[in-house]
Design a protein around this nucleic acid. Structure first.
Lengths: 191, 191
DNA sequence: GCTAGAAAGCTAATACACGTAGCCAGATCA
DNA sequence: TGATCTGGCTACGTGTATTAGCTTTCTAGC
């Protein structure tokens, strides 16, 4: 009967450690409750339901990754910043594959995620600022970065590449391909 | 008491139509059974369990997509063939988002998928043949194609892009970026 | 310090889902 | 025709999400 002292945040903590340990599919209220030392229905005092918990986990992961990307861009500019952000993206996904799988792919379309998703985009947008792209160019350029980073990270973190060898090189080649495709303006001279 | 005349293939048919209609998460044995006009346990006469059914769906989808890609490459060569295969990949994923989500990301690591997965890779490898890449180059080049196609297709089919506008153009720019990155050898003169 | 009430835990019960066991009828084949 | 195999069924056990309603603990105000 002593209280466990749960809060929504602590429930999310438990959920994330569970996901890290046993994969995204193991994220069940029963398992989270056990990890919290509490009966399953008690979780409903802190979280609306399983869907809500999943959302909270997604928001947490999105925010955490954004922090990493922002840190990776800090103190860098131009191609250096862009490459650094792209590497940090991959690093996070490979270091925490199950968390990466918990990240929503369409954050901007769901209000719960919108703020965190916008912040992540802003990090990349800032890194691309030196190129002084038009709005339309910026849209295509951001999309291309997202395609490459998400494509590579989701494949690698899910074990999608047949051979583990030379993955670093494959990714560096993609980053070079991407940087090379950027228009040769202001930023290109900075590097 | 009249027999329903089920076979594993017909069960997979029902599963796929269910996935098309109601999404991958709706793929449950109960729902498939209802669609087949049969009680749930009867499905076990044709399919080992839910995991097995999921695998069979994945194999079917993988094979279906491979057929599309092969058809897209037919009668083309060089950049034309590569671009055509990449467009066909996206087209399939967007036309059948739930099926695309059912496709395994690591087919080569699971024996059930290996044959179908290998066949898909062969289509792309054939399209890249004119460049006469070394083995190591071929690995990186195939990976890059996979990253771009899967990255774009998975994001678009999951509603991951904020704005629906200009997606065709974004994809064409990526294809151009990719083709431009290929070494200027034999094939480049054919186009 | 006492007490009212909110907050946080619990048990019990419902609704589904997967999966197993074992029964029965219809098809097949000697 | 009759034996056997196959494909259906019902009944059951387990696990999960979720709701309802009870009880205990903490906290605020007097």
């Amino acid at each position: 009967m002593p209280r466990a002292g749960l809060t929504p945040d602590r429930v999310v903590d438990a959920a994330i450690s569970l996901v890290d340990d046993r994969g995204l599919d193991a994220l069940t209220l029963a398992a989270v409750a056990e990890r919290c030392g509490v009966a399953a229905p008690s979780l409903y005092k802190h979280v609306s339901n399983l869907a809500d918990l999943r959302t909270l986990v997604g928001v947490r992961v999105l925010a955490e990754m954004t922090d990493r990307l922002a840190a990776a861009a800090m103190g860098r500019s131009g191609p250096d910043a862009v490459g650094s952000v792209m590497r940090a993206y991959r690093d996070y996904a490979v270091a925490h594959p199950a968390r990466y799988a918990a990240m929503p792919v369409d954050p901007l379309h769901q209000p719960e995620y919108a703020a965190a998703g916008q912040r992540l985009l802003d990090v990349m947008r800032a890194a691309l600022r030196p190129w002084r792209l038009s709005d339309a160019q910026m849209v295509h350029t951001m999309r291309a970065a997202r395609v490459i980073t998400h494509g590579f990270a989701s494949l690698e973190s899910a074990g999608g590449f047949g051979l583990p060898e030379d993955l670093d090189e494959s990714y560096e080649l993609l980053i070079q391909m991407y940087l090379t495709s950027l228009p040769l303006t202001h930023a290109a001279q900075e590097s």
